[in-house]
Structures are given as structure tokens and as C-alpha cells.
Measured scan of single mutants.
Amino acid sequence: MSIQHFRVALIPFFAAFCLPVFAHPETLVKVKDAEDQLGARVGYIELDLNSGKILESFRPEERFPMMSTFKVLLCGAVLSRVDAGQEQLGRRIHYSQNDLVEYSPVTEKHLTDGMTVRELCSAAITMSDNTAANLLLTTIGGPKELTAFLHNMGDHVTRLDRWEPELNEAIPNDERDTTMPAAMATTLRKLLTGELLTLASRQQLIDWMEADKVAGPLLRSALPAGWFIADKSGAGERGSRGIIAALGPDGKPSRIVVIYTTGSQATMDERNRQIAEIGASLIKHW
């Protein structure tokens, strides 16, 4: 067993022997301040990774656009098919120029040779490549099948209805392509620590998230040296922004954090800054 596999296998073990965790309302004060600064709703939840206990939450059962955070769930569904012998990570998928959609920095470079399922998941999570996500959605049967996968996990809230990039439209009061912070946090925890996926697939999923290259201005910008984070960000229309993450000190994750916002007129930089400040408060009061 590799060191990384050992780390993920012992996530519940280490967490069980940690000192009790206590909620700190100071972080919620910052979440509410972010709402004021952005002029928009902000949803927040913080779960203990081992027990699933909610440590703090704000608007945990209000719907927010998922945006690209759905790509972690998508690759979880792909990995479940791999575990069941219905898919192979090494299978190569070929596609054409007509398949390319807006923001496809990886797939646009491989029109000639195609990409493997493993490479597509890596591109979808680490670079948020939209064509990679659409190609992977095709392998599982489309958005409705991802929703069905989530329902089978016990998540009857999260739903995907459309493809990239239309799913980022974020129309107010439109339930399409949305989740709730509580539902997303619980589902992410199941994917990373539950028995739904094999140990190898859980490790692969967290490795992809740990290698995320496009979430630097968010929670990662607030992390002290030595902290662990595996995350996936999302951005959408109407001032929408979000991030889902597993993080913790001492090089291992111990909490799940989900943050979503929508309806702001603020710039992307300002949305990023507010999420980073929430992260800084979380870490300060850990």
C-alpha cells in the first residue's frame, strides 16, 4: 500500500482519535458579512469528516447552483462504474471539434489522439474542462443518470439537468442544476469515506481534487503551510461562485467545507476574496 493510499485508508482512524471539535460562531459572522459585502445569498456548511456531524452552517438547506462543483460527483459516478466493471479508466475516447464547448483548455489539445477516461476526469476536476465533463456525462448516460446515481446514494436534493455550459445559467428560483450545502457536503463525505467506492477509487477521487489547479484564489489562499486540501470550485452566471473541499491540518483532511453564493453584482475577484476570507476565519478558529 502506498503512503497516499495509507493516508486515505486511515482518515477515519486518525479522526477518531482527534480531540473533540467545537464550532466557532466567528466564522458564521464572516459568512454573514460576506453576504453584506456581496449583496447576495451565501450558503455555508462545515462537517466533521469522521462523524458527519454538522459543526457550523448557514442557509444549509437553500438551493444554490452547483456550477462546476458537480464534476466531482460526476467522476465519482464514473469511478463507481469502474468498480462495477462497467468502465475502464484506460479506455480512450475520441471526439471532434464539434464536441468542444466553451472553456476546454485540455480537451482542445487532444482532438487528434483523444483522451482516456482517467485523463478526462483529471481534466474535468483539476482544470474544470467543460468538454471533458460533457464527454464523461455521455459515458454514464447524461445528466439524468448522474441525478439517479445521487438518488441511489441517498441524495434526493442534488440534481443535474443540463450539460456544460448551460448548467451554469443560475436563474433565480430555478431548481435545475442545483444542490443544497448540506446535501453536497453529505454526498461528498460519502464519496470520500464511505463504502460506495473502493479504496482505490476513493484515493483516485481525492487525488484529482488535491491536484486542483484553478481554485488557488479561494480556500487555498488562506491555508497555512502543512495543511491538506482537496477541492473543486465552480463559477456561473449572475454572480455565482462555489467551492467544495476536504481539508485539515497535519497533512490530512478532517472536515468537509461547502460554500456557495449566487445573485451578486460583485466582480469575480471580490467573490473570490470573500470566500478566501471565510476560509481564513475557519482556519483561525479551527
Rank of each mutant, 00 (worst) to 15 (best):
L196T: 09
E102L: 04
P65K: 14
L47H: 02
Q97E: 05
F64D: 11
K32E: 00
A246V: 09
A280K: 06
P249A: 10
Q265E: 14
I278V: 14
L223Q: 14
A133N: 02
A211W: 00
H94V: 09
T178Q: 10
A170M: 13
G226C: 14
S128Q: 07
F228C: 14
Q203E: 04
A245V: 06
L205H: 07
L136A: 04
W286H: 00
G234Y: 04
A170V: 02
T267K: 04
I125F: 13
C121V: 13
L146K: 08
H156N: 01
A222R: 15
E195M: 08
T158R: 09
D269E: 15
S233M: 13
E119I: 15
N272I: 04
F70N: 00
S57N: 08
P224I: 00
V117C: 07
K252A: 01
D83K: 02
T116K: 06
N134D: 09
F228K: 14
D155T: 14
A183G: 07
I125H: 15
E169R: 02
K30A: 15
A170E: 02
K190H: 15
G43T: 06
G216S: 10
D83P: 03
S68I: 00
S122P: 13
E145S: 09
K71Y: 05
P25C: 06
R271A: 09
G236E: 07
S104M: 06
L136M: 04
L100A: 14
V72D: 08
V31L: 02
V42D: 00
L146A: 02
G242Y: 15
A170Q: 15
Y95R: 07
G226T: 06
D48Y: 00
A185C: 07
D207H: 06
V117W: 04
V258F: 07
Y95N: 01
S51D: 09
V257A: 00
H151Q: 11
D207S: 08
A170W: 10
V78Q: 12
R176H: 02
I283Q: 12
E108I: 13
L111P: 03
L167Q: 09
S128E: 01
A132D: 15
A215Y: 13
N168D: 04
L74K: 07
G142M: 09
A245C: 12
L47I: 08
Q204T: 09
T112K: 13
E61Q: 09
R202C: 08
M180F: 00
A183F: 10
E166P: 03
P143S: 04
K53P: 02
E164C: 14
K144W: 12
L111T: 07
K109G: 12
D207L: 06
L49G: 08
L219T: 12
G39N: 10
S80W: 02
I275Q: 15
L160S: 11
L205M: 09
E119M: 11
T131I: 13
I54D: 04
L191N: 05
I93W: 14
D33E: 04
K232M: 15
R202D: 09
D231Q: 08
R238T: 06
G194F: 03
I54W: 02
G39V: 10
T138I: 15
H110S: 15
I278E: 15
T193F: 05
A34P: 08
A77Y: 02
E164M: 02
W208A: 05
A235M: 09
R271K: 00
K71R: 01
I54Y: 08
L55T: 05
Q86D: 07
K213N: 02
I171C: 00
E102T: 07
V78Y: 12
V258N: 14
D99M: 10
K232R: 15
A133Y: 07
N98M: 01
A123V: 06
A40E: 05
K144G: 08
G263L: 03
Y103F: 01
I140E: 15
P217D: 02
D212M: 15
H285T: 02
T158V: 07
M268T: 11
T198L: 09
N50T: 04
D250N: 02
D161L: 00
L188W: 04
F58H: 15
G239V: 08
M209A: 11
I125P: 14
K144I: 10
Q265A: 11
A222K: 15
D207F: 08
A133M: 10
N168I: 11
L199P: 01
P249V: 07
P217C: 02
S96N: 04
T139L: 03
R241P: 12
V42N: 04
R271I: 12
E166Y: 14
G279T: 08
L223I: 12
T198E: 07
V157Q: 00
S68F: 09
Y103K: 00
T267D: 14
M67C: 00
L100F: 11
S80C: 03
L55N: 08
S264N: 01
I125R: 14
G142T: 01
E237D: 15
H110R: 14
R220S: 04
K109F: 13
L247C: 05
P65G: 09
L247M: 08
E195H: 12
A246R: 06
E169F: 02
N130S: 07
T126V: 04
Y103I: 00
M67E: 07
I283S: 15
E62D: 12
N173M: 06
A124G: 09
M127H: 07
G154T: 03
T187V: 02
K232L: 11
D269C: 02
G251T: 06
A246F: 10
Q274F: 01
T131V: 10
S68P: 09
R63Q: 05
R162L: 09
R59M: 02
V258E: 06
T107G: 01
E166W: 11
K30N: 14
V29Y: 08
H151L: 08
T267N: 04
A246H: 08
K252I: 04
D155S: 13
G251A: 04
R92N: 09
T112N: 09
V42R: 00
A185Q: 05
E145C: 12
E87D: 12
D36K: 06
K284Y: 05
H156P: 04
P181L: 10
V82T: 06
G141M: 06
P253K: 09
